[in-house]
Nucleic acid binder design. Sequence first.
DNA 1: TGGCAGCTGGCAACCAATTGCAAAGGAACC
DNA 2: GGTTCCTTTGCAATTGGTTGCCAGCTGCCA
Lengths: 349, 349
Amino acid sequence: MTDTSNPGGGEGPAAARPRNGKQATTIYDIAELAGVNPSTVSRALSTPGRVSAKTQKRIEDAAAELNYQVNVFARALPTGRTRTIGLIVSDITNPAFFDVIRGAGTAASDHDYTLMLAESAESAELELTAARRLLATVDGLILASPRLADSEIQQLAAQKPVVVVNRNVEDVASVVADTDAGVADAIRHLATLGHRHIAYVAGPDRSWMSKRRWESIKARSDWSGIEATVVASGVPTVDGGRRSAAAVREGSATAVFCYNDLMAIGLMRELQAAGVRIPEELSILGFDNIFGSDFTTPPLSTIKSPLHEYGAGALRYVLDALDKGASDRAMPSLKTELVLRGSTGPAPA
Amino acid sequence: MTDTSNPGGGEGPAAARPRNGKQATTIYDIAELAGVNPSTVSRALSTPGRVSAKTQKRIEDAAAELNYQVNVFARALPTGRTRTIGLIVSDITNPAFFDVIRGAGTAASDHDYTLMLAESAESAELELTAARRLLATVDGLILASPRLADSEIQQLAAQKPVVVVNRNVEDVASVVADTDAGVADAIRHLATLGHRHIAYVAGPDRSWMSKRRWESIKARSDWSGIEATVVASGVPTVDGGRRSAAAVREGSATAVFCYNDLMAIGLMRELQAAGVRIPEELSILGFDNIFGSDFTTPPLSTIKSPLHEYGAGALRYVLDALDKGASDRAMPSLKTELVLRGSTGPAPA
DNA sequence: TGGCAGCTGGCAACCAATTGCAAAGGAACC
DNA sequence: GGTTCCTTTGCAATTGGTTGCCAGCTGCCA
């Protein structure tokens, strides 16, 4: 006896009403109780000022008495609006997204919107499915570090407002922090400590951000007269960092930047397991300043991103695009910052 | 010029159609192209076998040609179904939920459902708002470690299928692992190491799970002739663990269980900062085996929960309740397991 | 007191599907 | 070839709001 077959006779679809058997109240019930037309109820409830104060009050009282809740589907059908914004993160297990989510979440409820979260488990295919499904039911979409192709993102952005976080896609709004500020401080710091050769363990080849970080490192190193090389690249996880250990040891760098903290932690632990002392023999730096990056021994030095602002800024941008129609709002300029902890030290003699 | 005022004349609500200006295709367009009635299109697309193979093909071809996408709102309006399940976690920054989310997510896509995620940032008020909003648009709801009152949860469960993870609420389905298995192993292990007095740092007073864990510890300690006491309780975060350090030092226990890994990590770090050697002077154990619990020095010994199965089991349960109407499916029995790492050692002499 | 403008509220069409009922079509059987 | 029965399809009502248009009412001013 499934819900869909519902042989129970002419009482309409059972699934549409609450389990308790009572009909959900509609604006028609309110209209009857208040002695007005349903259209007036609709206006009273969604277009403030359109009806007289007296009628407004009568309708609000009736609505309260009947414990009315709008049917979001019925409202969305003609308007297409749901007061809901979607956020897709590429990997829910990456703590870097915590603050992005929190930032977007609080910004959403500040504006009486609801945030819908989805994750793609690092799979471009899953991400596309999730994005398409979400886009059908939300007013706008935020993609945090998406794995999708540029063209796919552009296609999504052609339908509803889309903002990309931590990546640049032509003709699509994006929120990206200025990596240069933090990197400059870090390189200056390393130079002071006597490092003359640094390495970069890159993220995924397709990662725009990984490339961006390398460019920044390279430029600043050149400027400081330090030699910089990419020694490896891999998946942006603890395990990916572990697997880069061999390549790091083969090189002659005395300090290593990793694409993110996850990789830095993996690298550090793998090297320590092999007897390498951090930071005496090698300095290690990550990016993002994620949860757990201070759990390690030594705690990780890292370049912090304003992750909370990523989320909040992206959400506000989507809302603006929704209101103004145009998406010409300037993104706030976001700065990265060096966080010095124990994984960096003087270059070995 | 907002969308809602839309003075642009008689072309209908602009927001309802895609930005590119073309109407979204409907079953009416398909009906026209295929030369059949819209109702036949509806049946072909959602009730397999209801129309002849020939017509089916014709309709599918037409749908493909027009690049048809169902309008989820229009479908949900008469049916009340969205093929969507909601999952609310009390704290997205708690890595314990990673696997719950992943488990529910994969189980959902296995059944062609979409998972909608929301978080309540440890606030009961936000949680209630999120739950109500979500419940309006999903077919069923999973609450992971909810902060809501029992009565509020029961109220939600009266409307649509609801499953609670990591908590027991009367008349509401719940997924809870048997903590006893892991605790028994842990206490036996501690007894072997010579510990005669253990302490428990509890979670929030309102946490059902914290109470459950303590009962288990107490029962097993009694059985092994070990003295067990609750020395503190607090918020289930790293910081909460830190703040319990003083109470722990005042006691005479040689081994401490913490309500979860987060607290255990906080406690350990605070004690280490004060010069206490772990595990030489004190053994520490957590619960959950979260991401990062092996980053610490020493890595944390903990009692692992089958978090992935929590999520998957809860989701399957909701789906079953949706199909069968009744919710008499037996929950799988889930076992906890001791994970020994470096934070436990022989009792000091 | 008459004319005009501005508010209010009602009517009805519309959004895009689903589904009960009934008619039409086809196959099988006598 | 006619009847019966089952399958396939069409018709139209329904889901619950939103909104353009219009009519009636009120108030203001002359």
